[in-house]
Simulated assay, not measured.
Amino acid sequence: MTSFSRIRDQFARFGELREQLRDRWNGDIPLPAVLADFYEQVGPWGATYHENVGPVGITLSETNISFPPLHRLWNLQAGYRWDASNGQRVPEWQENWLVVADQNADPFILDIETGRILHAMHGTGSWDPAEVAPDLPTWAAALAAVGLVCLEADEDLRNDDWEIKPEHRALALQDLIAVLGDEQEAECFLEILEF
């Protein structure tokens, strides 16, 4: 398992990080210990563009995966745990699921009971998430690996058809194998990210 201090060093390339203590959590369920550790030790904070909004969190480059600051994490549950239009609980959303980040509204979910990270597609009519990582530190390290490839490629990342260039995908795959330990898992991870 990757340490949060290493992940912090990688995440720092994507925006401001700040230690966020557990008392910033405003959810209706207890904050899972691993998530509390993530926010204390990594602490995605982000820039403040409007004072009335506050910090917006960080996005990992071209992956479009966004992490809110801890005090906004409970609000991220709207549209998943409860219907954002009427506040009613979504019946098929399991109590042990907590959205920790999203990619264009597709949630990455911490399964509080198992510690696994799941991913689901929004707009399909039901929530049917699949496992993407065995735990939050592994998942965050894998995301950082792909995000750093994007960041370092900069404007050279995509070809004229707006597809990821093969050499950058190969580099991301290589870095993911180092994190996940398995080429097939790394390939599946890239497919989920549509990379």
Rank of each mutant, 00 (worst) to 15 (best):
residue 150 C to M: 01
residue 156 D to A: 13
residue 150 C to Q: 02
residue 89 R to G: 05
residue 105 A to T: 15
residue 147 G to P: 02
residue 157 L to A: 05
residue 142 A to C: 14
residue 133 A to Y: 11
residue 133 A to V: 14
residue 8 R to S: 05
residue 117 I to N: 08
residue 138 T to P: 14
residue 136 L to E: 02
residue 110 L to P: 14
residue 80 Y to G: 01
residue 100 V to A: 11
residue 140 A to C: 15
residue 60 L to N: 05
residue 120 A to R: 07
residue 63 T to F: 02
residue 98 L to G: 11
residue 164 I to M: 04
residue 159 N to G: 15
residue 155 E to H: 11
residue 102 D to Y: 01
residue 132 V to H: 03
residue 148 L to H: 10
residue 91 P to V: 09
residue 150 C to A: 14
residue 150 C to K: 02
residue 125 G to I: 06
residue 126 S to V: 08
residue 34 V to G: 03
residue 60 L to R: 01
residue 80 Y to L: 05
residue 172 A to G: 08
residue 91 P to F: 11
residue 174 Q to W: 13
residue 4 F to E: 09
residue 26 N to C: 07
residue 75 N to R: 15
residue 175 D to H: 15
residue 64 N to D: 09
residue 137 P to K: 09
residue 158 R to N: 05
residue 188 C to D: 10
residue 2 T to P: 15
residue 133 A to M: 12
residue 108 F to T: 06
residue 26 N to H: 11
residue 157 L to H: 10
residue 6 R to G: 08
residue 154 D to V: 10
residue 63 T to R: 04
residue 168 H to P: 00
residue 105 A to F: 15
residue 177 I to T: 13
residue 176 L to V: 06
residue 122 H to L: 09
residue 92 E to C: 09
residue 156 D to Q: 14
residue 4 F to V: 06
residue 130 A to N: 13
residue 97 W to V: 04
residue 73 L to N: 09
residue 85 S to Q: 13
residue 174 Q to A: 15
residue 142 A to D: 11
residue 90 V to C: 04
residue 41 Q to H: 03
residue 143 L to P: 11
residue 45 W to C: 04
residue 18 R to Y: 04
residue 148 L to N: 12
residue 74 W to V: 00
residue 106 D to I: 00
residue 107 P to N: 11
residue 39 Y to W: 02
residue 168 H to C: 03
residue 22 R to H: 05
residue 56 V to S: 04
residue 60 L to I: 11
residue 135 D to R: 09
residue 88 Q to L: 14
residue 95 E to F: 05
residue 97 W to R: 10
residue 35 L to Q: 01
residue 6 R to Y: 11
residue 74 W to P: 06
residue 69 P to W: 12
residue 66 S to Y: 00
residue 192 I to D: 03
residue 163 E to D: 15
residue 52 N to S: 04
residue 119 H to Q: 09
residue 181 G to N: 13
residue 86 N to I: 01
residue 35 L to S: 04
residue 97 W to M: 05
residue 21 L to P: 06
residue 111 D to G: 00
residue 32 P to M: 02
residue 89 R to Q: 13
residue 9 D to H: 13
residue 165 K to F: 12
residue 47 A to W: 08
residue 27 G to V: 00
residue 103 Q to N: 03
residue 90 V to Y: 06
residue 194 E to W: 13
residue 106 D to A: 11
residue 173 L to Q: 15
residue 122 H to D: 01
residue 162 W to E: 09
residue 50 H to I: 00
residue 19 E to N: 06
residue 104 N to H: 04
residue 162 W to S: 07
residue 111 D to P: 05
residue 64 N to G: 07
residue 13 R to K: 13
residue 46 G to K: 00
residue 91 P to L: 09
residue 173 L to G: 03
residue 152 E to P: 02
residue 133 A to C: 13
residue 69 P to N: 07
residue 77 Q to W: 07
residue 4 F to I: 02
residue 160 D to F: 02
residue 126 S to E: 14
